[in-house]
Amino acid sequence: MERDEHTLIRLACDGDADAFRALLDLHYRTIYKMAYHLCGHREDAEDITQNACIKVSHNILSYRGEARFTTWLYTIVLNTFRDWRDLKANTVQKAELYEKLPGNDNPERAAQIGQGLRKLSALPPEERETIVLVFAQGFSHKEAAEILGCAESTVSWRVHEARKKLGGMEEAI
């Protein structure tokens, strides 16, 4: 798998469109998931995903392997999300992210998750991004720091702060 991905990346960087498609396809769901965790809404997440994929199309040829591919990729996703969020913030002052609960058959469960999401959305944006990268996407602090473009210690600090602010999440689990 890992090796396949490397091959795909290399071929894509060399301009192989089929490989590029396969590569995107491989990451599509993860990109979408990250977008979803960041914005909390399916259609918005799909918008962000689409824009992120386009950005990747424009940049892949210049990807030189300076950064790990996933780090590089998710930096793009994050930036795409930020653009989206800025617009949203600009559109509706203090727009509540996560306003709509994710679809869930169990209303009680949905309410719980909603509560957790609301807590998340009350976090400062940088802390929320950090939380999503670390806990939802499973990046290490180091990787998250690369994606966020900050120091590793900043990531750790943000995680610490966010956890304090989130308080008990038990009821949301």
């Binding site: 599509y28 769901r29 979408y32 998931k33 979803y36 965790h37 399916r42 997440a45 799909e46 995903t49 994710p102 679809g103 869930n104 998750i113 957790g116 999401l117 939380i131 999503v132 806990f135 939802a136 499973g138 995680v159 966010a162 956890r163 304090k164 989130l166 308080g167 008990g168 999440m169 038990e170 949301a172 689990i173």
Partner: peptide, 22 residues
Amino acid sequence: MTTNPEDLEKFFAAMDVPEPDS
């Protein structure tokens, strides 16, 4: 009270992310 890292992970894992539209 501070959230447990595990709880946060569980929280995200338990969240039903809707399938992206094919």
